[in-house]
């Protein structure tokens, strides 16, 4: 069984994101980027399924500019067998991404599509669901456990009330939650080998996708800064401080 995993290049989670002074977005120039952490979990899951003999081939796909090749090399170092680069230098909104990924999924005829539940840059949490809808296939979102049995997938989901286990028919879309697994360290020999694995380039045009603007970002603002805390030594001080603020 073939698995397709989508991986997105985002500003690294360690970076303190700065809002541009004109409010048009956040600063990305010269800033460290890496693979979206939820996509790392997706890659790890695919590799584990392959190690268990459930998956035979892993294809990684990304959408974006030339620098995204780095993200694909990371996916290849994780254990993807080959990679597809949908080249697009411009902005890509979730629906456009979903259309492109659906086209790739169809073309590759993969039975399992794994992606992160959301990307940490825009936190949209839409792409996986939309891919499933576009292709009219099953979806199992926020997965914290994935088991493949024949042509079905048993997926445990993290929901408000606790855990929910569902069974879906393949082909299906699975989106990963934080607790699904802990991605492995990449080994230097694997990173070296990844440099030699094949990457196929394609484009929205090749895939028959017309990028559209579903929405426009009108303003970006940083979160309000928290005012400084006051250290209190005794309960009395605490009480009077709270009273002073009119909270008691």
């Amino acid at each position: 069984m073939k698995a397709l995993v989508s991986v997105k290049r985002v500003v690294d989670y360690n970076v303190r994101v700065q809002v541009k002074s004109d409010g048009s977005g956040v600063v990305t120039d010269g800033v460290k980027h890496s693979m979206n952490p939820f996509d790392e979990i997706a890659m790890e899951e695919a590799v584990r399924l392959k190690e268990k003999g459930k998956v035979t081939e892993i294809v990684a796909v990304t959408i974006g500019g030339a620098k995204n090749e780095e993200t694909l090399r990371t996916a290849l170092a994780f254990g993807a067998d080959r990679a597809i680069h949908v080249k697009e230098e411009g902005e890509v909104q979730p629906l456009t991404a979903a259309k492109a990924l659906a086209a790739v999924l169809k073309k590759e005829d993969a039975k399992l599509f794994i992606c992160g539940k959301q990307a940490i840059d825009d936190d949209a949490n839409q792409t996986g669901q939309m891919v499933a809808a576009l292709l009219d296939i099953a979806q199992a979102t926020f997965a914290s456990k994935v088991e493949i049995e024949g042509d079905k997938a048993k997926v445990t989901r993290e929901v408000d009330a606790g855990l929910e286990t569902i069974e879906v028919d393949l082909p299906a879309v699975v989106t990963t939650d934080l607790r699904l697994n802990e991605p492995r360290y990449l080994k230097l020999p694997d990173i070296m080998k990844a440099k030699k694995k094949p990457i196929d380039a394609t484009s929205f045009g090749d895939l028959g996708v017309t990028p559209g603007a579903g929405f426009k970002v009108t303003k970006t603002t940083p979160p309000p800064t928290r005012s400084k805390g006051v250290m209190v030594k005794t309960v009395d001080e605490l009480v009077s401080a709270l009273k002073g603020k009119g909270l008691l």
Partner: peptide, 21 residues
Amino acid sequence: VVGDLGINREGEHKDDYTPGM
């Protein structure tokens, strides 16, 4: 020698210990 990964604070190998190269 580069990159021994996955050694804990006490210097023991963790589950994900990966010897360097």
